[in-house]
Design a protein around this nucleic acid. Structure first.
Length: 451
RNA sequence: GUGAUUGUAGUUCAGUUGGUUAGAACGCCUGAUUGUGGUUCAGGAGGUCGCCGGUUCGAAUCCGGUCUUUCACCCCA
């Protein structure tokens, strides 16, 4: 028996009581808003067949998929030549399941499998962990939670607008103010690619554009020229990428192609949201926003914290053919995803969690003897029945030890029960912060907490 | 996958050119204090120096490997 110290797989974490309470707080706020906006909950298995997952996230994504070794004698269906053909080939022979990489693909699978029962438009939300075999670093884990909401089977631009309002409501509820919702439209990016004469390399063009805030204007222009882009036109485009005046941008891109679908949709989108000017939505049209996920075809979103050094905390966009790979064509959808772990990190850094969410108890009962303990048992149950978070120190240790415990768990009040209290029916309620205490009847105590 | 970086007590960290028994602070336990916690004082427990190997008379210290931490690139929540 080796006695090695236990460890966690890298990139994974335990969530202790305090962290867990804070995470639950965030999840609750997100979930309440999902429900308020009419989404229904879906849960899917942690593992999917690899045939469902592979090829959906690009070559990079396939590398990052966690594969599950087949049960039993997983070598029985292989022969030595499979080994010779390399690990990628061998993987297909010995693993046919993998851990889910995101929530969107499992959702698409679900929609296809249940298409006859679903009434479109279908709004679903899903809050579950996903796994990526990435190398961990700041704000990046191998196991993390996504909180997704998707609207599928509707092309109306109100959906785009509504999800923006949902972002706003969630961050309002969380008390998080330092963020900006960046939006863009894939059609506009494609139009710009065509304008700089990179129509056939639109994806590569987008990838370069996306690096703007990291590597700067000059290097982006250089890289685009290497791709074969037009120098003069690219410099015109760069002016657009760095502008944040909505009117100016819409005017300019309209001039390039008045019939562009993206431009039309962006105009409709703002028209809808202008009705909610009182909400002071923090939206920014940013033509340099590209986003990697290849399935997006329309509007794309990203929410970025503004006062904390951190990547995006939410992302999303419209996809026209998500279910196409599973044989169901023509279903358009739009979805957003909240990055729970990153939102947590931002809130922690800005100290935005309310104090009471980590408070375990409202009152702890301490006592002086075995017979006092017996009496205390009925008292603690009465307090609980009254809806008070109450606990009883479960053995008659020295009073000092009991108070020490009350201190450690930061109980705001203790209820002291001794022979005098049992005799008079008045228990000593002590405010642990001030040290003040006074004898009160059970009814008075319940009123104190609930009144 | 590429390139750096970290690891010593429960925690945060010292530890000299390689040299007796590896230290501090905080935390923890006991007592001062048998109906009152936080403060104070006294005492105590706690380490295979991440792991494996190498160099050396001798390694926490030097070298190699491995795991781990953190960070950047790629990509992404």
């Amino acid at each position: 028996m080796s006695k090695s110290k236990p460890t966690l797989p890298r990139g994974t974490r335990d969530f202790g009581p305090e962290v867990s309470a804070k995470r639950t707080y965030i999840i609750d706020k997100i979930k309440q808003n999902f429900i308020k906006y009419g989404f229904s909950q879906l849960e899917t298995p942690s593992m999917e067949n690899l045939s469902v997952l592979t090829g959906k996230y690009g070559d990079e994504g396939d590398q990052l998929l966690y594969k599950i070794l087949n049960s039993g004698d997983y070598l029985s269906k292989t022969n030595p030549s499979d080994y010779e053909l390399g690990s990628k080939h061998l993987t297909n022979k010995i693993a046919d399941k993998g851990l889910r990489y995101d929530l969107t693909v499992p959702f698409a699978r679900y929609v296809v499998m249940n298409q006859h029962e679903i009434s479109f438009p279908f709004k679903r939300f899903q809050i579950q962990p996903v796994w990526r075999a990435d190398r961990p670093q700041k704000g990046r884990y191998r196991e993390f939670y996504q909180c997704d909401a998707d609207i599928i089977g509707s092309r109306g631009i109100w959906n785009e607008a509504e999800l923006t309002l949902l972002f706003n409501d969630v961050f309002n509820d969380l008390g998080l103010e330092d963020y900006v919702i960046k939006i863009n439209h894939r059609e506009i990016l494609f139009m710009l690619a065509e304008y700089v004469e990179l129509k056939d390399q639109a994806v590569a063009f987008c990838a370069e554009i996306d690096k703007l805030d990291k590597i700067g204007e000059e290097r982006v222009i250089e890289n685009v020229l290497v791709l074969g882009g037009d120098n003069v036109k690219m410099r015109e485009v760069m002016e657009l990428l760095t502008s944040n005046s909505r009117e100016h941008l819409i005017e300019k891109v309209s001039a390039i192609d008045p019939g562009n679908k993206g431009v039309k949709e962006i105009i409709q989108y703002f028209e809808a949201l202008d009705q909610f000017a009182d909400k002071n939505l923090k939206i920014e049209l940013d033509l340099s926003l590209a986003r990697g996920l290849s399935y997006y075809t329309g509007m794309i979103y990203e929410v970025k914290p503004t006062s904390v050094q951190m990547g995006s905390i939410c992302g999303g966009g419209r996809y026209d053919n998500l279910t196409g790979v599973f044989g169901l064509q023509g279903i358009s959808g739009i979805g957003i995803s909240f990055g729970l772990d990153r939102i947590y990190d931002v809130m922690e850094e800005l100290d935005l969690f309310p104090e009471e969410i980590t408070q375990r108890l409202e009152v702890l009962i301490v006592h002086f003897s075995e017979s006092n303990l017996l009496h205390s048992q009925t008292v603690v149950m009465k307090l609980r029945e009254a809806g008070i978070k109450a606990d009883l120190y479960p053995e008659s240790d020295k009073i000092k030890k009991q108070f020490n415990y009350a201190d450690k768990i930061q109980t705001p009040f203790t209820l002291i029960i001794g022979d005098d209290e049992v005799k008079t029916g008045k228990f000593m309620l002590k405010d642990m912060k001030s040290g003040n205490q006074k004898p009160m009847t059970l009814d008075e105590i319940i009123r104190e907490f609930k009144g």
